[in-house]
């Protein structure tokens, strides 16, 4: 890690942050770079520092597009459920750029696998709590994120991790809208219920097959008929009926290790996982769904405390 440094170019001399937080330990390797846990010497607060990863020849195109956009998005978001970027710090050389962020002990994945109570399913009250957080964060993003949508068009197919990728993206639809994200939230909902990713495809084709197996092949669906005829596809998909109701048991205290799921919860899950993106529920509408207004009240998950 660079020490507090001055960095100068011909006509500019900038005094950078006087105290770059001191690194404590290595947390994780993100998409764009290494994340460190650190203490801010000025405030004694624990923060996370992410070092932006540069291509071998960073001067070729300048600061990486994806990182530039991510920083822009994170700086403009302000929501209790979204990690905030406190500041940006540039080190001794231009390829040392750091994002200073709030620090969390673990992410959701780690909480499911290693957190307290990892061996038992989440209580439905905990699932509901987490779903509200995720959906309200997403509703916030959607409300201000218009300008980040269209530039992403070229990269759409790459943006979402395969297991959480909406079916229309797998058929190279190039329209990146909020429906893509609500699909992912549906996948996360299912995952919270069974503590395991619900659609673990090994490749794009396998991912499509897994989706159609779980949710049924879209027959008599206007959207999919149009998409397939537009693409001139002659490929016949095996006709499946939806397996969703069998996979996620409603009102049952089974020993299968699934969280309890109310009929409202199942309805929300199936609306989030709607194959037709035009019929997929929006984050805002999902928050108004009876799942949140009826049944058990929400409860802060055990691993939060």
């Amino acid at each position: 890690m660079p020490k507090a440094d001055r960095w100068s170019s011909d006509e500019e001399e900038i005094v950078l942050l006087s105290l770059l937080p001191k690194p404590i330990s290595h947390l994780d390797e993100g998409t764009y770079g290494v994340v460190w846990k650190a203490r801010d010497n000025a405030t004694q607060e624990i923060v996370a520092i992410k070092q932006i990863k540069f291509d071998s020849d960073m001067t070729k195109e300048g600061f990486p597009i994806s990182a530039l956009r991510e920083i822009g998005v994170l700086l403009s978001l302000s929501h209790e459920s979204i990690v905030s970027v406190r500041e940006m710090v540039v080190g001794s050389t231009p390829d040392k750029v750091f994002m200073v962020m709030d620090c969390f002990e673990m992410d959701l994945q780690a909480a499911m696998k290693k957190g307290p109570g990892a061996s038992t399913p989440f209580a439905q009250s905990e699932v509901k709590y987490m779903m509200r957080q995720i959906l309200s964060a997403m509703a916030h993003v959607t409300s201000i994120a218009r300008k980040y949508e269209h530039p992403a068009r070229n990269m759409t197919q790459m943006v979402v991790t395969l297991w959480y990728r909406a079916p229309e993206l797998l058929f190279s639809e190039s329209c990146y809208g909020p429906e893509i994200d609500t699909w992912s939230i549906g996948c996360i909902f299912g995952e919270l219920l069974i503590k395991e990713a619900i659609l673990k495809g090994t490749g794009e084709l396998d991912q499509i097959q897994k989706i159609f197996k779980l949710l049924g092949t879209p027959t008599d669906d206007e959207y999919w008929e149009q998409l397939w005829s537009k693409q001139g596809s002659t490929f016949k998909w095996k006709n499946n009926d939806s397996d969703l109701a069998r996979t996620f048991a409603v009102n049952s205290f089974s020993a299968t290790g699934q969280s309890y799921l109310s009929p409202d919860g199942f309805d929300l899950l199936s609306r989030l996982l709607s194959l037709n993106p035009k019929k997929r529920i929006t984050a805002e509408d999902a928050l108004r769904h009876s799942y949140f207004s009826c049944g058990v009240t929400e409860q802060v998950p055990m691993f939060y405390v």
């Binding site: 170019s9 500019e12 900038i14 950078l16 960073m58 001067t59 070729k60 195109e61 300048g62 600061f63 530039l68 920083i71 822009g72 700086l75 403009s76 500041e87 940006m88 540039v90 231009p94 750029v97 300008k147």
Partner: peptide
């Protein structure tokens, strides 16, 4: 040179605290 632009880029981003998404 590419290096000039890349350096200037960081100088500008820093000067503007990385707030470079004005509403248009």
């Amino acid at each position: 040179t590419a290096g000039d632009i890349a350096s200037m880029e960081l100088v500008i981003l820093n000067a503007l605290s990385w707030r470079v998404h004005p509403p248009s």
